[in-house]
Nucleic acid binder design. Structure first.
Lengths: 197, 197
DNA sequence: ACGAAAAATGACCGTAGGTCATTTTCTGAC
DNA sequence: GTCAGAAAATGACCTACGGTCATTTTTCGT
C-alpha cells in the first residue's frame, strides 16, 4: 500500500491548516505570513504550496468551513417558524453566533473588503458559501412577507446593517451593542415585509 | 529671500499629492505604490518621504480634504430644517454626494478596514475628520428627536447601514440602489426618533 | 538493499514600504 | 562671477512578503 504516504500528506495538510486557523484567528489575514504558518506547524515555507496555490485559497477554505459550522446550528429551526418576526429572530440568533466569534468576524470583514479589490477573488467570494447569501435569506423569509417588497432586498439590507456593524466594532467604537443592531434590523425587516397597524 | 526654495518645495509636494490623488482614485490604496506616485509626478521615490512619513499619512490628508469638500456643501442647510425627516434628507443628500464618487467611496472603505488592523492608525481614524462622525450626526438630529433613543446611536446605525452598503457595492452586488438604502435608513431613523401614529 | 515516487526544503525572484548617504540645485554674500 | 552652505532630489539599499522550483530527504514496494 501507498496509503501511509497519503495519510502523512493529509496529516501535514491538517497541521498546516490548524496552524493557519490559529494564526489567522489571532493576527488577521494580511498580518499572518505563509512562512509563519508553516514555521508554527514545524515545516518549511515551500511545503505550504504543495497543498494550496495561495494564501487566499487556504483562507477561503477556512471561511467555508466556519460558515458551514455556523449554519449547521441554524438548520431546521426556520421551518417551524410562523411569522416574519420569528424567522428574523432565528436569523439573528445565527448572526449573533458569528458575532460571538469576535476576532473572526472582524477577520471576515478584513478579507471581504480585501477580496473586493481583486476581480477573480471577488467573484469567488460572491458565489458560494463564503458570505451571507441574499438568496438563502430570501428563501427563509419569503413565505412570511405580505408586502411586495423583494425579499432579496430585505436580505441585502439586513446584511448591510450587519456588516456595517462589523466595521463599527472593528474600529473599536462601542456605541452600539449587538442588541441595538439586532432590534433595528428586525424592525427594518418587519417595516418592509409586513403591513403595520 | 529663501522663499523661492520653499515655493519649489511646496510645489513638488502639491505635484506629488495630485499624482497620489489620481492614482489612489483609480487603483485604490494598497494597489498604488509610493514609487508609482513619485514616478508619475516625475520624481524619485525618496522624495516622497521628505514630505510625508508614510503612505498612510498622505492618504489621511487626502481623505480629510475630501471630507472637508463634501461637508462644505452640506453646511447651513440643516439649520433651516424643521423635522427629523428633513434633517435626514439633508444628511442623505450629503451621503449621496459621497456615494456619487463611486471609486472613492470604495477606497474609503478599503482604507477604513485596513486602518482597523493597526492600533495607532485606528485611533487617528476615529478621531477627526476622516469618518462620518456620530457626534456631529447627533448634534444635527438631536432637536428633532422626541423619543429617548440616544441620537448618537441613531447616527451609528445610519453609518452602519451606509458602510454596509459600501461593502455591498464594492462586491459588485447590484441588488440595492442608493434609493433603497436611503429610504430604509430614513425609515429606521424616524422609527427610532419619532413616535409613530 | 535498492530505486522510484512522494514529501519536504530553502535559496531565490519580484515587489513593496521605508531609510539614508550622496549628488544636484539653489541662493545669498562677497 | 564665484563660492560655500543649505535645501532638494536621488536611487542603492534594507527588510518583509507571496510565490517558485531545483535539490535533498523520506517512504515503500520489490
Amino acid at each position: 500500500m501507498a496509503k501511509k504516504q497519503q495519510e502523512k500528506s493529509r496529516q501535514t495538510m491538517q497541521e498546516l491548516m490548524d496552524s493557519a486557523f490559529f494564526l489567522f484567528g489571532s493576527k488577521g489575514f494580511v498580518q499572518t505570513s505563509v512562512a509563519e504558518i508553516t514555521e508554527h506547524a514545524g515545516y518549511a515555507k515551500g511545503s505550504f504550496y504543495r497543498h494550496w496555490n495561495s494564501k487566499d485559497e487556504l483562507f477561503l477554505l477556512i471561511v467555508e468551513q466556519k460558515f458551514r459550522h455556523y449554519r449547521a446550528e441554524r438548520n431546521g429551526r426556520v421551518d417551524r417558524a410562523t411569522s416574519l418576526e420569528e424567522v428574523m429572530n432565528i436569523i439573528w440568533d445565527f448572526l449573533e453566533s458569528i458575532l460571538d466569534d469576535e476576532n473572526w468576524s472582524s477577520i471576515f470583514l478584513e478579507f471581504t473588503v480585501y477580496s473586493a479589490r481583486n476581480d477573480v477573488l471577488r467573484q469567488r467570494m460572491n458565489k458560494s458559501g463564503y458570505r451571507l447569501s441574499n438568496a438563502i435569506f430570501a428563501d427563509l423569509v419569503r413565505d412570511h412577507i405580505v408586502t411586495d417588497y423583494p425579499p432579496e432586498k430585505i436580505g441585502a439590507l439586513n446584511t448591510a446593517l450587519f456588516e456595517g456593524f462589523l466595521i463599527h466594532r472593528a474600529l473599536g467604537t462601542r456605541l452600539l451593542s449587538v442588541k441595538d443592531v439586532r432590534d433595528s434590523a428586525i424592525a427594518m425587516a418587519l417595516g418592509l415585509g409586513t403591513r403595520q397597524g
